[in-house]
């Protein structure tokens, strides 16, 4: 018997929870009998989820573009001098708690989605850069030599040898970055950004555990689904690379 991929039931559960939360009102009313309002209804969970996803999506896109570009630059001969600086920045930057980055961005740039977006993009840069450098570095020197031997240009080697071979490691870095961003975006509700963290924050400040539970369930499930999807993508890229190598061999 073929086992069902856990990604499928998790994704179905997420969609059902996001769209069908109002239907669970009687359940929450039963679980929290003292609560006059057992369901978070100020915003629909669909709009919160979409806001959350667009904040994470835009910031992660910026992180990936800039992070991969920086990593490519510091692994070229012309940028090699900057490699230790990039390594110091990514290592030191990751000791900064995400909450600290968020808390600094707000007073400097003001409340609202833009400072949160910048904070998330900056913080998300670090794992992407680190992983891309590691991925390009682990390409065997012999493979690079062989590509040069058959007359490939440096750009050709980068685009057709280094980046494809580094892809599974780069995707692992993007996965870390996106997962951290999903969590930090939830905390961004404390600085007035509408995300899935909002029901949790509203629930915590208003002693409404039902709200907290609803927000936590949706955002936790969302993170798990995204993580599983990245896991599949990483596995797919690994197989794709092996197939390519097998074909050329």
């Amino acid at each position: 018997m073929r086992r069902i991929d856990p990604l499928i039931p998790a994704a179905i559960a997420l969609v059902a929870l996001v769209l069908g939360m109002p239907a669970l009102k009687p359940l929450f009313a039963w679980m929290f009998p003292d609560q006059a309002r057992p369901l978070y209804e100020q915003d629909s969970f669909l709009s919160l989820t979409l806001d959350h996803l667009s904040l994470v999506g835009i910031s992660s896109a910026v992180s990936v573009v800039v992070g991969v570009a920086v990593a490519i630059f510091v692994t070229r001969p012309s940028g090699r001098a900057f490699r230790p600086l990039a390594e110091t920045l990514t290592a030191a930057g990751q000791t900064f708690p995400p909450i600290a980055v968020l808390a600094i961005a707000v007073p400097l740039l003001g409340f609202g989605p833009l400072p949160a977006l910048i904070a998330l993009a900056l913080y998300g840069l670090l794992p992407v850069t680190e992983a891309t450098v590691a991925g390009i570095e682990q390409v065997p020197a012999g493979v690079r030599e062989a590509a040069r031997g058959i007359g490939m240009s440096p750009t050709g080697i980068l685009a057709r040898v280094e980046l494809p071979l580094a892809a599974p490691v780069i995707v692992a870095g993007i996965r870390t970055s996106v997962i951290i961003n999903i969590g930090t975006a939830a905390i961004a509700s404390t600085v007035g950004v509408k995300t899935l963290g909002l029901p949790i924050i509203v629930g915590l400040s208003g002693f409404n555990t039902a709200y907290v539970l609803q927000g936590a369930l949706v955002v936790g499930l969302l993170a798990a689904v995204v993580d599983l999807a990245f896991d599949r993508l990483g596995g797919f890229l690994g197989r794709w690379n092996r197939d390519r190598v097998a074909k050329t061999a």
């Binding site: 997962i179 999903i182 969590g183 939830a186 905390i187 963290g197 949790i200 924050i201 629930g203 915590l204 907290v212 539970l213 927000g215 936590a216 369930l217 955002v219 936790g220 993170a223 798990a224 993580d227």
Partner: peptide, 11 residues
Amino acid sequence: QTVPSIALFGL
């Protein structure tokens, strides 16, 4: 590890 911190605290 994937579950956002604020969600795990809340759960």
